[in-house]
Write a protein that binds this DNA or RNA. Structure first.
Lengths: 221, 221
DNA sequence: CTATATTTGTAACGATCGATACAAATATGC
DNA sequence: GCATATTTGTATCGATCGTTACAAATATAG
């Protein structure tokens, strides 16, 4: 067994405590004093366990990213692109506006640090966000291969559109928007979402105007 | 005339220099050393002229907000709601991805500080963003009164949808998205534009609308 | 038991933070 | 000219920043 005095705190719980601090105050706004107080440990314990403030943030981000990737997996598992979009946006709306108190509203990948004195944190976060966008893009490209989406559909733009909505929703959530408000916004984005595999959607779908808002996709042929 | 040694720098130019620093590095990421260096003045001159770091940021934000409000005026001056949406989103895309070098990409109202150790800056920025949303909402409510929009259309949701898109676009721009990419996203959002009842403008905005027909009064009759 | 290994809490490190004291410099008012 | 008013540059303030030295505390290995 491992020798020496045993650690008196749970590493995962400490990371979760640190996560809420970074989430609420951003990377630069979260001081080591804030973090150690929230984590219930002293500075030497923190440094011995996590290395540095930036390393701690990276560890927190990794933990956060894992959960977000779990979510993305469930999103792309949907059987149609419309369901992918709905699962994604409605999930983000629910997640970002969660007021259970366990996590702050919004998204760590934005509130962690959109801009900093040093750009490494914003860049890192942007890379993580781009990763999520790539997951959506791959899903849409696959849908094109399978014929669900027309060949002239731009999978990259579609994925970027969803990420723009997601980031925008998270910004609103961080500013106090309610779940109801965010779901309304998501519903607008999802209304008339292109689903017909034979239709070039982005180009000319405005006048088709299917009656009412069509939130659930039609299954592909 | 005013007595005493005259100021050796231009207040407006100094504010613009400070703006780019806050914009790029955020409120907390911008140190007074960064600011004074960029502004080309010494700390006592800065404090004598602007009061404090927070006061300086407020002054910068006021200057920024003025320009954004000018933009919003041109947006709501469009003669149809669809044109309002297009002018807004395309304008934001162009503005946020501007790489002329005069300003950083993105939007100061986001990069200034989405999260901070102290919440006053995020709250202030959120209030300013909400103000832009209110301008859009008022424009849409007026369109309902004038009959352009059906009575069951939710003006608030529509305005929120555009702000979500705007904020999302700015996040993407801050991460390096190009104008082309952002215009594609904006185009998707505009193609999803949910005009419920007879509206001729969404389907064919290439037609430039009815040229110079309707005088637009921002104020309700 | 002793020796070794690791964590703990206390206390403080140098660097940087936002903000100022002070006197020289430069204008106006008389 | 002199008195007054304001800005300037230098030099620095106390507070806080992220980080660490150090020794007491607590585990295992023998």
């Amino acid at each position: 067994m491992r020798t020496g005095r045993p650690r008196s705190f749970c590493k995962e719980e400490a990371l979760d405590k640190a996560m809420t601090v970074f989430w609420r105050q951003g990377y630069e706004g979260a001081s080591m004093a804030d973090l150690t107080r929230a984590m219930g440990i002293n500075p030497p314990s923190l440094y011995a366990c996590f290395g540095s403030k930036e390393d701690l943030f990276k560890a927190v981000l990794e933990r956060y990213d894992q959960r977000r990737n779990n979510f993305m997996e469930s999103v792309v598992a949907a059987s149609t692109v419309a369901q992918v979009a709905e699962t994604f946006l409605m999930g983000v709306a629910a997640f970002a506006s969660d007021t259970s108190g366990k996590t702050p509203p919004g998204c760590l990948m934005l509130q962690g640090g959109l801009s900093c004195g040093d750009t490494t944190i914003p860049d890192t976060l942007a890379r993580h966000r781009a990763e999520k966008e790539a997951i959506l893009r791959n899903r849409f490209e696959q849908a094109k291969k399978e014929g669900e989406l027309a060949r002239d559909v731009d999978a990259a733009s579609l994925a970027r559109y969803l990420m723009v909505m997601s980031n925008g929703i998270c910004v609103q959530a961080a500013a106090g928007a309610t779940l109801k408000e965010l779901r309304e916004v998501a519903a607008i984005a999802l209304s008339n979402w292109p689903v017909k595999d034979a239709d070039p959607m982005v180009a000319n779908k405005s006048e088709k105007a299917s009656a009412g808002s069509r939130l659930v996709a039609v299954r592909p042929a």
